[in-house]
Protein backbone atom coordinates (compact mmCIF):
# COMPACT_ATOMS: atom_id res chain seq x y z
CA UNK A 1 0.00 0.00 0.00
CA UNK A 2 2.78 2.38 0.93
CA UNK A 3 4.62 1.48 -2.22
CA UNK A 4 1.77 2.88 -4.27
CA UNK A 5 1.36 6.04 -2.20
CA UNK A 6 5.08 6.74 -2.38
CA UNK A 7 5.09 6.42 -6.16
CA UNK A 8 1.68 7.82 -6.97
CA UNK A 9 2.91 10.28 -9.67
CA UNK A 10 4.78 7.51 -11.48
CA UNK A 11 1.78 5.22 -11.18
CA UNK A 12 -0.45 7.94 -12.56
CA UNK A 13 1.92 8.54 -15.47
CA UNK A 14 1.94 4.83 -16.18
CA UNK A 15 -1.85 4.69 -16.15
CA UNK A 16 -2.16 7.68 -18.45
CA UNK A 17 0.55 6.21 -20.70
CA UNK A 18 -1.39 2.96 -21.08
CA UNK A 19 -4.55 4.92 -21.72
CA UNK A 20 -2.86 7.09 -24.34
CA UNK A 21 -1.19 4.29 -26.28
CA UNK A 22 -4.37 2.19 -26.16
CA UNK A 23 -6.54 5.03 -27.43
CA UNK A 24 -4.12 6.11 -30.16
CA UNK A 25 -3.58 2.54 -31.42
CA UNK A 26 -7.32 1.88 -31.26
CA UNK A 27 -8.02 4.83 -33.56
CA UNK A 28 -5.37 3.66 -36.05
CA UNK A 29 -6.62 0.08 -35.86
CA UNK A 30 -10.23 1.13 -36.41
CA UNK A 31 -9.56 3.40 -39.37
CA UNK A 32 -7.15 0.99 -41.06
CA UNK A 33 -9.25 -2.06 -40.19
CA UNK A 34 -12.42 -0.66 -41.79
CA UNK A 35 -10.46 0.53 -44.83
CA UNK A 36 -8.73 -2.83 -45.33
CA UNK A 37 -12.06 -4.64 -44.85
CA UNK A 38 -13.40 -2.45 -47.67
CA UNK A 39 -10.42 -3.53 -49.79
CA UNK A 40 -11.08 -7.18 -49.04
CA UNK A 41 -14.66 -7.08 -50.32
CA UNK A 42 -13.96 -4.69 -53.21
CA UNK A 43 -14.55 -5.71 -56.84
CA UNK A 44 -10.99 -4.65 -57.74
CA UNK A 45 -8.60 -7.65 -57.56
CA UNK A 46 -5.37 -5.75 -56.67
CA UNK A 47 -7.09 -4.12 -53.68
CA UNK A 48 -8.43 -7.49 -52.56
CA UNK A 49 -4.94 -9.00 -52.83
CA UNK A 50 -3.45 -6.12 -50.84
CA UNK A 51 -6.08 -6.56 -48.11
CA UNK A 52 -5.48 -10.30 -47.89
CA UNK A 53 -1.70 -9.80 -47.74
CA UNK A 54 -2.08 -7.13 -45.01
CA UNK A 55 -4.19 -9.37 -42.81
CA UNK A 56 -2.12 -12.50 -43.40
CA UNK A 57 1.14 -10.73 -42.65
CA UNK A 58 0.12 -8.77 -39.56
CA UNK A 59 -2.21 -11.29 -37.97
CA UNK A 60 0.32 -14.11 -38.15
CA UNK A 61 3.35 -12.23 -36.85
CA UNK A 62 4.05 -12.30 -33.10
CA UNK A 63 3.42 -8.85 -31.67
CA UNK A 64 6.82 -8.76 -29.96
CA UNK A 65 8.50 -9.33 -33.32
CA UNK A 66 6.44 -6.45 -34.79
CA UNK A 67 7.62 -4.27 -31.93
CA UNK A 68 11.25 -5.22 -32.58
CA UNK A 69 10.84 -4.31 -36.24
CA UNK A 70 9.06 -1.05 -35.38
CA UNK A 71 11.66 -0.05 -32.79
CA UNK A 72 14.89 -1.10 -34.50
CA UNK A 73 14.26 -1.53 -38.23
CA UNK A 74 11.74 1.20 -39.05
CA UNK A 75 13.84 4.08 -37.63
CA UNK A 76 16.85 2.88 -39.67
CA UNK A 77 14.93 2.78 -42.94
CA UNK A 78 12.35 5.58 -42.69
CA UNK A 79 10.82 7.90 -40.05
CA UNK A 80 14.14 8.56 -38.33
CA UNK A 81 12.88 11.00 -35.71
CA UNK A 82 9.84 9.14 -34.38
CA UNK A 83 9.50 8.73 -30.61
CA UNK A 84 9.17 5.28 -29.03
CA UNK A 85 5.55 6.17 -28.28
CA UNK A 86 4.76 6.80 -31.96
CA UNK A 87 6.57 3.63 -33.06
CA UNK A 88 4.77 1.54 -30.44
CA UNK A 89 1.48 3.11 -31.51
CA UNK A 90 2.13 2.14 -35.15
CA UNK A 91 3.12 -1.42 -34.26
CA UNK A 92 0.07 -1.94 -32.04
CA UNK A 93 -2.30 -0.14 -34.42
CA UNK A 94 -1.19 -2.07 -37.50
CA UNK A 95 -1.24 -5.40 -35.68
CA UNK A 96 -4.73 -4.79 -34.28
CA UNK A 97 -6.04 -3.46 -37.61
CA UNK A 98 -5.79 -6.96 -39.08
CA UNK A 99 -8.14 -8.29 -36.38
CA UNK A 100 -10.49 -5.32 -36.74
CA UNK A 101 -10.56 -5.93 -40.50
CA UNK A 102 -11.66 -9.53 -40.07
CA UNK A 103 -14.32 -8.59 -37.52
CA UNK A 104 -15.70 -5.91 -39.87
CA UNK A 105 -15.62 -8.32 -42.78
CA UNK A 106 -17.62 -10.90 -40.84
CA UNK A 107 -20.10 -8.12 -40.05
CA UNK A 108 -20.35 -7.18 -43.71
CA UNK A 109 -21.13 -10.80 -44.54
CA UNK A 110 -24.12 -10.81 -42.17
CA UNK A 111 -25.87 -7.98 -44.07
CA UNK A 112 -28.29 -9.60 -46.54
CA UNK A 113 -26.97 -9.48 -50.12
CA UNK A 114 -30.23 -7.87 -51.27
CA UNK A 115 -29.34 -4.65 -49.43
CA UNK A 116 -26.22 -4.14 -51.53
CA UNK A 117 -28.07 -5.22 -54.68
CA UNK A 118 -30.78 -2.64 -54.05
CA UNK A 119 -28.15 0.06 -53.50
CA UNK A 120 -26.30 -0.86 -56.67
CA UNK A 121 -29.57 -0.92 -58.60
CA UNK A 122 -30.17 2.69 -57.57
CA UNK A 123 -26.86 3.58 -59.21
CA UNK A 124 -24.69 3.80 -56.10
CA UNK A 125 -21.00 3.14 -56.55
CA UNK A 126 -19.25 0.41 -54.59
CA UNK A 127 -17.94 2.82 -51.95
CA UNK A 128 -21.34 4.51 -51.56
CA UNK A 129 -22.99 1.12 -51.15
CA UNK A 130 -20.46 0.14 -48.51
CA UNK A 131 -20.50 3.46 -46.64
CA UNK A 132 -24.21 4.27 -46.73
CA UNK A 133 -25.91 0.89 -46.73
CA UNK A 134 -23.73 -2.06 -45.72
CA UNK A 135 -21.36 -0.77 -43.01
CA UNK A 136 -24.07 0.98 -40.93
CA UNK A 137 -26.01 -2.28 -40.84
CA UNK A 138 -22.88 -4.33 -40.12
CA UNK A 139 -21.92 -2.18 -37.12
CA UNK A 140 -24.12 -3.93 -34.58
CA UNK A 141 -22.73 -7.38 -35.42
CA UNK A 142 -19.18 -6.05 -35.33
CA UNK A 143 -19.43 -4.48 -31.86
CA UNK A 144 -19.05 -7.60 -29.64
CA UNK A 145 -15.87 -8.91 -31.36
CA UNK A 146 -14.56 -5.35 -31.58
CA UNK A 147 -14.93 -4.95 -27.83
CA UNK A 148 -12.81 -8.11 -27.29
CA UNK A 149 -10.22 -6.87 -29.77
CA UNK A 150 -9.83 -3.54 -27.98
CA UNK A 151 -9.55 -5.23 -24.58
CA UNK A 152 -6.80 -7.44 -26.02
CA UNK A 153 -5.19 -4.29 -27.41
CA UNK A 154 -5.16 -2.72 -23.93
CA UNK A 155 -3.32 -5.69 -22.51
CA UNK A 156 -1.00 -5.99 -25.53
CA UNK A 157 0.09 -2.40 -24.91
CA UNK A 158 2.15 -3.77 -21.97
CA UNK A 159 4.76 -4.85 -24.52
CA UNK A 160 5.41 -1.18 -25.24
CA UNK A 161 6.67 -0.84 -21.64
CA UNK A 162 9.61 -3.03 -22.53
CA UNK A 163 10.58 -0.48 -25.20
CA UNK A 164 10.87 2.53 -22.89
CA UNK A 165 7.33 3.81 -23.41
CA UNK A 166 5.87 5.07 -20.13
CA UNK A 167 2.92 2.86 -19.26
CA UNK A 168 1.59 0.67 -16.44
CA UNK A 169 3.59 -2.46 -17.03
CA UNK A 170 6.80 -0.47 -17.34
CA UNK A 171 5.95 1.12 -13.99
CA UNK A 172 5.58 -2.31 -12.37
CA UNK A 173 8.89 -3.42 -13.83
CA UNK A 174 10.62 -0.26 -12.61
CA UNK A 175 9.46 -0.74 -9.01
CA UNK A 176 10.24 -4.44 -8.89
CA UNK A 177 13.72 -3.65 -10.24
CA UNK A 178 14.13 -1.31 -7.28
CA UNK A 179 13.42 -4.24 -4.95
CA UNK A 180 9.88 -3.52 -3.78
CA UNK A 181 7.50 -6.40 -2.97
CA UNK A 182 6.07 -7.45 -6.27
CA UNK A 183 2.66 -8.78 -5.18
CA UNK A 184 1.17 -5.44 -4.16
CA UNK A 185 2.47 -3.63 -7.22
CA UNK A 186 0.99 -6.24 -9.52
CA UNK A 187 -2.33 -6.03 -7.73
CA UNK A 188 -2.54 -2.27 -8.29
CA UNK A 189 -1.39 -2.52 -11.89
CA UNK A 190 -3.95 -5.26 -12.54
CA UNK A 191 -6.67 -3.07 -11.03
CA UNK A 192 -5.66 -0.17 -13.25
CA UNK A 193 -5.91 -2.42 -16.33
CA UNK A 194 -9.32 -3.57 -15.13
CA UNK A 195 -10.51 0.03 -14.96
CA UNK A 196 -9.64 0.51 -18.64
CA UNK A 197 -10.96 -2.82 -19.88
CA UNK A 198 -14.22 -2.50 -17.90
CA UNK A 199 -14.67 0.96 -19.33
CA UNK A 200 -14.23 -0.45 -22.85
CA UNK A 201 -16.73 -3.27 -22.38
CA UNK A 202 -19.19 -0.88 -20.74
CA UNK A 203 -18.94 1.59 -23.60
CA UNK A 204 -19.50 -1.18 -26.14
CA UNK A 205 -22.50 -2.55 -24.27
CA UNK A 206 -24.01 0.91 -24.40
CA UNK A 207 -23.30 1.23 -28.12
CA UNK A 208 -24.82 -2.17 -28.82
CA UNK A 209 -28.06 -1.21 -27.12
CA UNK A 210 -28.26 1.99 -29.15
CA UNK A 211 -27.51 0.42 -32.52
CA UNK A 212 -30.41 -1.97 -32.93
CA UNK A 213 -31.62 -2.35 -36.52
CA UNK A 214 -35.11 -3.74 -36.79
CA UNK A 215 -35.63 -6.35 -39.49
Amino acid sequence: MNVLLDHLPAFRDGFLGTLAITAASAVIALVLGVLIAGFRVSPIPPLRAFGTAWVTLLRNTPLTLLFLIAMFVVPQVLFKGLSPFMLAMLALGFYTSSFVCEAVRSGINTVPLGQAEAARSLGMTFSQTLRLIVLPQATRTVLPPLSSIFIALTKNSAIAGAFSVTELFGFAKLLSDQGYAIAWIFLWVALAYLVITFAISGAFRLLERRMGVAR
Binding site: G114, E117, I133
Partner: peptide
Amino acid sequence: MVFQSFNLFAH
Protein backbone atom coordinates in the same frame (compact mmCIF):
# COMPACT_ATOMS: atom_id res chain seq x y z
CA MET B 1 -35.41 -2.58 -60.05
CA VAL B 2 -38.03 -4.09 -57.75
CA PHE B 3 -37.09 -7.28 -55.93
CA GLN B 4 -39.08 -10.23 -54.68
CA SER B 5 -37.85 -9.59 -51.13
CA PHE B 6 -38.33 -5.78 -51.31
CA ASN B 7 -34.78 -5.06 -50.07
CA LEU B 8 -35.68 -1.75 -48.47
CA PHE B 9 -32.75 -0.32 -46.52
CA ALA B 10 -33.48 -1.62 -43.03
CA HIS B 11 -31.65 1.16 -41.17
